[in-house]
Design a protein around this nucleic acid. Structure first.
Lengths: 367, 367
DNA sequence: TGAAGTGACCGTAACGGTTCAGAACCACTT
DNA sequence: AAGTGGTTCTGAACCGTTACGGTCACTTCA
């Protein structure tokens, strides 16, 4: 092809050195250690570089030699693009980006499509460490990351014992929210939760599936609920828990409808995320029920949209979580091996929770 | 240190080959070209690898040899974390992530702090190409990217002639919005815009600074406005244009206040972004003015928050922009050299624009 | 029976740098 | 004259891999 006439082999450090009649070391020093050569020679090197179109030392070759890539990898369970749709994930990313920026480190988003089992992307990532954010326990990508000989920080994952971790106490936080509802008088409730495993199950969940959930966060939150309600005599097995694979407002609405269909007499709809709760809120109102007069709805996360909606929820410091993860990963200096950061949460008493108006009978037939 | 007792040199492809008594090529093939060796030998290789704790071929070394990194770099003008706070930027990221995901490519966020002149991060990025999103013309990071011998796509940047580009026609879009306002009868207007250059100037802007603006997008939008209003006899030099360095709602409010202070008789407040417009909206209402009865407020971008607020604005396909940029970069196959994608925009007639109630006198003294 | 084909594996040469221990040179002391 | 110390530059090893062009033994087919 005629084009190939123009593809002059790009200049390298070696060719530059040859052109100048100096050693490669000297050229390298011109870029990395200006004090190691005379200003005059350095000027000549840089000028010749410009003339030859040499763009400076190749980053990959440098990484190979120095054994550092100047970037950390982020592994997400969802499609990469989903991360930019979920407010909680965005907050996490913001915090992580902040930490990376402070350290002058790049942030590589690893394309780990959960649908495919293809782990190659993890192997191909040239990074100095990984942050793993809320992936299922049994995700092969996670396994692949742990095999890589680089430091790793897990976020919203179960404690693996030998790996750094950051997260919140999901179980305790949800337990506190449940206590609040219990103290308000709620005993007959329904639950809407995010997906519990890698398979899609847009339906009710058995207690077994709840306990075996591969998403640590969801498992812990459900456990907190179950524990709290069981302790006041509620038979958790009878509580309708609807799972949704997609984490969207529409999913929350659909799941809420499913729960209400199953047991119209519940006095509270507990959702394991704000997004789902916002959907539930919409669905409940669409059915002509008033919140919180006719029914209580709660969320989890404390995203801004929830605040605007006055949602009763648990606020967790998403951004701080990202930042803590980044710091943990980057401050690898003299680390006491497995470190764990547990951030605190806060119960947000919004306007979507109140005491049930009366017994179920009263609600149907008036006081 | 006692610890060093445990730092057994990590296994490499070569050590694995030695252990097995085969050539390095064969081990490499075991990972990359299973068809090039017998299943039996491959099994042995993989098993020995597991036994020795060999995590598979080193990604950096592989990148050096194959000349591809499996990632594209994204250069943003703002602090990395800012990108996760601006809805338009988030949309762009989502689209770009989508494109990367489809191609199985990673997305490296390059920490290019605009405050510092430090371009090293760009040099250190091991990527197969760059997407540059809305940085000032004279940003040294941009120059550094263009020096790198990898394909690049510019987004929301001026046409450099020899580099791929994606964007919208900001000038025409803003011109159309201005025409709309003109047809409603607005002649005396004020403007709030984002920063025009790398230096901070939270104040009014001279026409010279407007024309010399280093942010292509802002320059084009202002030019569209100036042209439209000039064509109906408005002396653009008298129009107050307030600039703000920070792109926040609070900034928008402050700038709006500044403009209203300067000329209380304006009938419309034109903002070059929705974020700024939302701030302006708040400020205007705080002053007891009704929108659009007392004053018209417009934005630009078409973010969701603007839609909810009923803002009259220009909607641009942010996500599509990201996606197009990614596709352009990744479909580098047989490219006709400089390609350009210009996406279309849409005038959104919200409820924040209407005809001015009357003359300025009437507004002050009643009809 | 010999030529051609096929599958399995190997050796060498990059890929483009960084690093460290000197060598060469110079000025200055003792 | 020999030693000292400092600056400037060099040589060679090394980082861990993959591309390329073989070799070699073993069919297969006319």
């Amino acid at each position: 092809m005629a084009r190939s006439m123009h593809v002059r082999r790009p200049a390298t450090l070696a060719s530059l050195a040859a052109e100048l009649g100096v050693s490669r070391t000297t050229v390298s020093n011109a870029y990395n250690r200006p004090d190691q050569l005379s200003p005059e020679l350095r000027r000549r090197v840089l000028e010749t570089a410009r003339r030859l179109g040499y763009p400076g030392p190749d980053p990959v070759a440098r990484s190979l030699r120095t054994r550092k890539a100047g970037a950390v990898g982020l592994l997400l369970t969802e499609n990469l693009s989903y991360a930019f749709r979920d407010p909680a994930a965005i907050g996490f990313l913001e915090g992580l980006a902040l930490a990376c920026e402070d350290a002058g480190t790049g942030l590589l988003l690893v394309p780990a499509n959960p649908e495919r089992e293809d782990v190659a992307a993890v192997h191909r990532a040239g990074v100095d460490g990984f942050v793993v954010y809320s992936v299922p326990d049994d995700d092969p990508h996670l396994a692949a990351v742990l095999e890589r000989p680089v430091p790793t920080v897990l976020c919203d994952q179960p404690d693996l014992g030998n790996v750094d971790r950051v997260g919140i106490d999901d179980q305790a936080a949800m337990h506190a929210l449940a206590q609040h509802l219990i103290s308000l008088g709620h005993r007959r409730v329904g639950v809407v939760c995010m997906r519990l495993a890698r398979d899609r199950n847009d339906d009710f969940v058995t207690p077994e599936r709840q306990q075996a959930a591969h998403f640590h966060v969801q498992r812990a939150r459900l456990a907190g609920l179950a524990q709290a309600f069981a302790s006041v005599g509620v038979d958790w097995a009878t509580v309708p828990v609807a799972e949704r694979f997609d984490h969207t407002i529409a999913s929350g609405a659909a799941a809420a409808a499913q729960v209400l269909e199953r047991d119209p007499q519940i006095t509270a709809l507990i959702c394991t995320s704000d997004i789902l709760a916002l959907g539930a809120l919409g669905e409940v109102r669409r059915r002509g029920m008033r919140v919180p007069a006719d029914i209580t709805v709660t969320g989890f996360d404390g995203i801004r949209e929830a605040e605007q909606a006055g949602l009763t929820t648990v606020r967790q410091p998403v951004m701080e979580k990202g930042r803590a993860a980044g710091k943990l990963l980057l401050d690898s200096a003299e680390r006491t091996r497995p470190r764990a950061v547990t951030l605190s949460t806060e119960l947000v008493l919004g306007s979507t929770a109140a005491s049930p108006r009366g017994t179920a009978e009263e609600r149907w037939f008036g006081p």
